[in-house]
Design a protein around this nucleic acid. Structure first.
Length: 345
DNA sequence: AACTCGTGGCC
DNA sequence: TGGCCAAGAGT
């Protein structure tokens, strides 16, 4: 198949199989002239970075309900946005989300730019998201390259170079296929194809609109593509978390520094996380072992966090952290690791 | 270029 | 259970 035929075939497939998502304007509505809200497109694309559609849905609805426009978000309190993001992971996204919203208001008068280079200059927007917003929100012929596209193109063209080395080549091949007509629908179509048909395991080649033009399938190598560089084994780190309850029910919490792991999130004061953690309680008290440890796996290490609890009197000041009144505390405002600690305490 | 940065679902 | 994977970006 010629490239133009491939893109046309995929668009026809998308017209029949486009998935319904809260942030998406489907092909039928788009054909009627309905245009996506660039704010909604941007917000969804940030949330979808390395995150599944199922995990994003409720967070997206919560955000657009609470902050309907980029100006509303720009005016939000940092702590409110971090709390609303809690549980979704990769918290630098939440910090950059606010920076970006404020930059759009300050530098662009509250309207997202359509130009990918202008988008790329905003916090939290990289090559993928710049292309996605430009294509999906403004229907410009930009090429999106995410994990789905890498897989689909590696199979379609039977590329055996391992990622991430193959990235540039796959990007060029993907760009060759990007049509001038309906580029926004096309961008979503390739990603939908990867998410629902050309899946990492057990791809449904029988349902694929590109099966006849797929070099990987012809060679029988498609299931092993894309090749990836081997991964390192994750070490295990140990730590101690301290849950102090004041006699009035207030809980001692600490906001982590903006940089680093769980940056900017609220959590329980902890010891350092390493091979042999030292006790480092945030307040003088009679600490008791909760008898169970919180286990959590991050991107590059496993963590086992021992939990200590204590009841402290009203007049005792903590060395670090802040007491939050019982009525103002919601464990859902904490990242998942810290929710696990709360559940154990 | 390689490393850091979350979480949940799947098999 | 444990490794893999998901609409990546920043450093």
């Amino acid at each position: 198949m010629r490239d133009a035929d491939l893109s046309a075939t995929l668009l026809a497939w998308y017209d029949r199989h486009a998935r319904v998502m809260p942030w998406r304007v489907g092909p039928a509505a788009r054909a009627e002239g309905v245009r996506p809200d660039p704010y909604a497109v941007w917000l969804s694309e940030i949330m979808l970075q390395q995150t599944t559609v199922a995990a994003v849905r409720d967070y997206f609805r919560t955000f657009v309900t609470r902050w309907p426009t980029v100006a509303d978000l720009a005016a939000a309190e940092d702590g409110d946005v971090m709390a609303a993001w809690a549980g979704l992971g990769y918290y630098a996204r939440a910090r950059n989300l606010l920076k970006c919203a404020r930059a759009v208001v300050d530098r662009h008068g509250g309207a997202f730019p359509a130009d990918p280079d202008a988008l790329r200059a905003l916090p939290g927007i990289g090559p993928y998201t710049a292309a996605a917003v430009s294509a999906i929100a403004f229907d410009l012929p930009e090429t999106v390259v995410d994990g789905n596209v890498e897989r689909v193109i590696a199979r379609l063209r039977d590329i055996h170079t391992p990622l991430p080395k193959a990235k540039a080549e796959l990007t060029a091949l993907a760009a060759d296929l990007t049509p001038e007509v309906r580029p926004g629908d096309y961008a979503q179509a390739v990603m939908d194809l990867g998410a629902t048909v050309c899946t990492p395991r057990n791809p449904a080649c029988g349902l694929c609109p590109w099966r006849d033009g797929c070099a990987g399938r012809l060679a029988g190598s498609h299931v092993d593509l894309p090749k990836k560089a081997p991964k390192k084994k994750k070490p295990t780190r140990l730590g101690i978390a301290y849950v102090a309850r004041r006699v009035d029910g207030a809980l001692l919490l600490e906001r982590r520094p903006d940089k680093g792991l769980l940056g900017g999130t609220l959590g329980w004061p902890c010891s350092a996380w390493d091979d042999a953690p030292q006790e480092d309680p945030p307040i003088a008290a009679e600490w008791k072992d909760a008898g169970a440890e919180a286990r959590h796996t991050f991107t590059h290490f496993h963590l086992r966090l021992a939990v200590r609890t204590a009841l402290v009197p009203m007049d005792r000041a903590p060395a670090r952290g802040t007491f939050i009144e019982a009525g103002a505390f919601d464990p859902k405002d904490l990242p998942t690791l810290m929710r696990k600690v709360h559940a154990l305490a």
